[in-house]
Design a protein around this nucleic acid. Structure first.
Lengths: 344, 344
DNA sequence: AAATTCTGAGAAAGCGTTTTCTCAAACCGT
DNA sequence: ACGGTTTGAGAAAACGCTTTCTCAGAATTT
């Protein structure tokens, strides 16, 4: 029977025939193996370009046991933070000839394990962005995912680099900023329970409380989206706090919007801070005071760690912490009570 | 010589041995081929789960000639629009068991062809988001990329579905909105020359001009980023126009910021419109009047087209146009001249 | 000039699946 | 009970490369 309709695909064999050499030689030339006569190499290259030969990645992948691709799994592609690290990883990896496969778990933590596993099998490595799964699950999963690098999480087992953001430090700075302005009652509108970065913020606030015992600190439970922030408005107002630490910029913006609807003036009546310094934080009304996180750098560093893992290069640090720095804009100010007690 | 250290990887052969059947049978069971005795199938399944067997994707890919992956190439992962379609495609594809590989051309149009080609070879298909390359290049590249679906571009050659947004209609609606408010001098702050959607907007404005001959329409050349919008402030003010159609929400936000710095009131002195209705458009000061584009739907539809292509299902329409709808917020209003001429 | 080491390229063995091909055994109708 | 279909599973051939193994012939050594 006739061979099935050849999809006009030129393979390594065609090039070999055209150049009058063996498959092995073509492969050698294509992979820059120098142990081949320059003249022959040239002949092969000519044949390759003439036939427009492009190596089939599937064949290569199988033969080499690698794909030059890494997987990135994020909880939500709609979140500017994850978009940032995705972009950072993607660009950095591209520099080294690697591509990235994305997996969006849609905040369903039970999906994470299977997505991560699948990504790992398809790729040479996997970076897990702020996985929502429990610590126990993460520990259990880690060995089967190696090489893996974590963003904003860490594991006991060594060999899995983490790149983290010092949310504790950031929230302390923000709280201190508010306290410095004279706020004595501060509310933290917390993020998702399952969020590790939320836990870090809470720990940071505990330290803050120790150094500022006179400040009345209250925790309001909430979420991580704009809508969550908007819905927290009632609780925030009811709390009587004049300084509000929102979980992130998104919730801060939601809160700003909610407060505006109720006629509460920011920062005159209430000061609000965000976290992350997403690109739009400076365009809110008023512009948002927040803790800037160098998110692209986080992504880029995550790639570097991954590359070291893949190359077997022992990376210097397997835990890198990025420090946020607060940027003060218009959403924070001296609380009303103080202003009122100092009439002109 | 001893086999190199087995990386503990269980292959189909291990399962076959464990179950006492041939490789072929294991494969059949794993792929839900029913022509296998239920009892044996059960035995195979038991062996598979006991050994925690997971098929190696590289092997499958090569044997099946497909990867269950599609590539998405975008000009800039930092652009909310592309983030939106990426998210839409990713989620929709995931539903059908496909994954997505991303390629960010960083707005370098010369990179697009190579990135797209590589993505295509690695994946079963490719969706090109608003490629910046010339029409000629696109036509030339198209055949080698098939199956491919285009977003916001189209080709002569059939078989390459396009999903587009009716930017012409949107900008006309926006312009009409401004004209309706009484603006008689309107400026369009154009996007990148190479942007096809910019051309569509220009075409739309031409139609608008025909139906509104009395309106003085001026075109200011510019870019697509926030910074571009900010830098256009001088030209905008100098133009004397009272109604400004920004290329997109990003440039509109930049412009808003620039106008604010100069003490120009929006919308009292100048009205500004954006385009896209990115999630943050409603939080600018004042909230941005814009043309909302159902960007997630665009991504989702792009996937559907791709799926049809992959399945050989002839899709009903190979050109789908999504209509934007304008959403009027606070950044547009009656021009000052009119207000002044109707004193209370 | 014979023996030994290098070089460079072809032959062939994987890589881990899927998918024909084959063929024995069970099943069928007459 | 016997030729003719089905069933069901194993053997083996792809899939398209990379890489090890081999082995001529050239280069070098004695």
């Amino acid at each position: 029977m006739a061979k099935r309709v050849r999809p006009i695909r030129v393979g390594i064999a065609d090039v070999a025939k055209q150049a009058g050499v063996s498959l092995a030689t073509v492969s050698r030339v294509m992979n820059g193996n120098f142990s081949v006569d320059p003249e022959i190499a040239e002949r092969v290259r000519a044949a390759a370009t003439e036939l427009k030969y492009q190596p089939n990645p599937m064949g290569r992948n199988l033969a080499r046991g690698k794909t030059d691709t890494i997987g990135v799994v994020v909880p939500d592609l709609g979140n500017p933070t994850f978009q940032g690290v995705l972009r950072g990883v993607s660009r950095a990896a591209a520099q080294d000839g690697y591509r990235v496969l994305i997996a969006d778990s849609s905040e369903v933590s039970s999906e994470e394990a299977v997505l991560a596993g699948e990504a790992r099998r398809r790729c040479d490595g996997v970076v897990l962005c702020a996985p929502r799964m429990s610590a126990a699950e993460l520990e259990e999963l880690a060995p089967s995912l190696h090489p893996m690098v974590l963003v904003n999480r860490s594991t006991e087992a060594p060999g899995n680099p983490s790149v983290m953001v010092d949310y504790g430090r950031g929230i302390q700075d923000l709280a201190t900023h508010l306290a410095g302005l004279g706020h004595t009652k501060i509310a933290y509108v917390a993020g998702p329970e399952s969020s590790a970065s939320n836990a870090l913020r809470l720990a940071g606030l505990e330290l803050f409380q120790q150094t500022h015992p006179h400040v009345d600190l209250v925790i309001l439970h909430n979420g991580s989206t704009f809508e969550d922030g908007h819905e927290s408005t009632g609780d925030v107002v009811a709390s009587g706090a004049t300084g509000i630490l929102a979980f992130n910029d998104l919730t801060a913006m939601g809160l700003l919007s909610g407060l505006n609807e109720r006629g509460v003036k920011v920062p005159e009546d209430i000061s609000v801070t965000g976290f992350d310094d997403i690109p739009f934080a400076r365009f809110t009304t008023p512009p948002l005071t927040t803790a800037a996180v160098p998110i692209m750098d986080v992504g880029e560093h995550a790639w570097q760690q991954m590359r070291d893992l893949l190359n077997g290069t022992d990376s210097a640090d397997s835990l890198r912490v990025f420090e946020p720095h607060i940027v003060v804009r218009g959403s924070t100010g001296v609380p009303a009570k103080i202003t009122a007690s100092t009439p002109e």
